[in-house]
């Protein structure tokens, strides 16, 4: 049995999902020969630390009640960076919210963990969109792993698929739907003819869009993902700010209807072709594999050997993202001697 001690930094929706999966899949992980113990959980105002292992069901109960500070291992005012340095653990799961302006606090968390010779698994796009090369070099220098499957398209296998199943392939171009919220809005506009504003309101009511939806509808989220894909899969030195970005707020029902009449759907497409990287609304033929509805994501990789490879799946969601995080954790544990 291979054992690993895990720390979760950022105990919001995704962090909670990771804890839930660690608990619910415990037996399945043991069947795979892996035993994971949660030794620390960090939040803004403190950390829970128990190097013998934190009981996940009690943790989740306290989280739901908003009473994490009542946990016996609660260390008020312990900063995440200090816990990352000081707590004896193997893998830091960094799942704080994405910030594409500064990358913080995730950037400092990840850099500190790597410098402390701890493996990192993250769903946080900001640090990777801004400092991909630096973080990868830091991981190599410290001889630890930096895994980020959950940063792009949540539960869909992308990086691990390319690293393993497409290992001998060169990625020539990438295009796809990388944001479920905008895909939901555009799909509703296409299906029902409603305005952008009405579809956005509906998305908010269903919990698909945030109250402040700029991050999604202006294409910021998709641009961060395109940056990570270009750097990780195509060896580019692409900066987030160099991704040409057009959002979906100006799309009107008349445009959707004209496209539909001519056999197209309008989708927000992230694309890396040649030396161009962009996120913009594009016309997708109705029978095209990228024409997926609802909150689905779809990614098309053009490779030299396998030609077009298409992955379709749920790009976001608590458990879907946790699935990608746990798969990265398992990869690290299984590769350890």
């Amino acid at each position: 049995m291979k054992e690993a001690r895990v720390m979760i930094v950022g105990f919001g929706v995704v962090g909670e999902g990771v804890a839930e999966v660690l608990d619910s899949k415990k037996k399945q992980l043991e069947k795979l020969g892996v035993k994971l113990s949660l030794v620390a959980v960090c939040e803004k105002d403190g950390c829970i630390v128990d190097e013998k292992g934190i009981g996940v069901s009690e943790l989740l109960k306290l989280k739901k009640a908003g009473e994490l500070q009542k946990h016996s291992g609660w260390k008020k005012k312990m900063r995440s960076v200090d816990a990352i340095r000081e707590v004896d653990c193997d893998i830091v799961v960094e799942v704080t919210p994405t910030n594409v302006e500064s990358g913080e606090p995730g950037l400092t968390h990840i850099a500190t963990a790597l410098d402390s010779k701890k493996h990192v698994v993250t769903s946080n796009k900001g640090p990777l969109a801004l400092k991909f090369s630096e973080l990868v070099e830091k991981a190599e220098k410290n001889n630890v792993e930096l895994k980020y499957e959950a940063t792009v398209c949540g539960g869909m296998p992308v990086f691990n698929m390319v690293e393993n199943a497409l290992a001998s392939n060169e990625i020539k171009s990438i295009k796809g739907i990388l944001n479920g919220t905008t895909n939901f809005i555009l799909s509703r506009m296409h299906e029902t003819g409603v305005t952008f504003e009405v579809a956005l309101k509906e998305a908010k009511e269903m919990g698909i869009a945030e109250e402040k939806p700029d991050y999604d509808v202006k294409g910021i989220d998709a641009a961060a993902k395109i940056t990570i894909l270009a750097n990780a899969l195509m060896g580019r030195k692409l900066a987030y700010k160099d991704v040409k970005r057009v959002g979906i707020e100006e799309i009107i029902p008349e445009g959707i209807a004209l496209a539909k009449k001519s056999g197209f759907a309008i989708k927000l497409i992230g694309e890396i072709t040649g030396d161009k990287a962009s996120v913009s609304p594009q016309l997708i033929p109705l029978g095209h594999p990228l024409n997926v509805g609802g909150t689905l994501n779809a990614l098309m990789l053009e490779t030299d050997l396998a030609k077009e490879v298409i992955v379709i799946g749920r790009g976001a969601g608590k458990i879907e993202t946790a699935s990608a995080i746990i798969s990265d954790v398992l990869e690290i544990v299984k590769s350890r001697k």
């Binding site: 295009k175 057009v246 100006e250 799309i251 445009g255 496209a259 197209f264 309008i266 497409i269 694309e271 072709t273 913009s280 609304p281 594009q282 016309l283 997708i284 033929p285 095209h288 990228l290 053009e302």
Partner: peptide, 10 residues
């Protein structure tokens, strides 16, 4: 204006 062009290679 917003230009929404057909996806390449369609």
């Amino acid at each position: 204006l917003v230009v929404i062009r057909e996806v390449e290679g369609s």
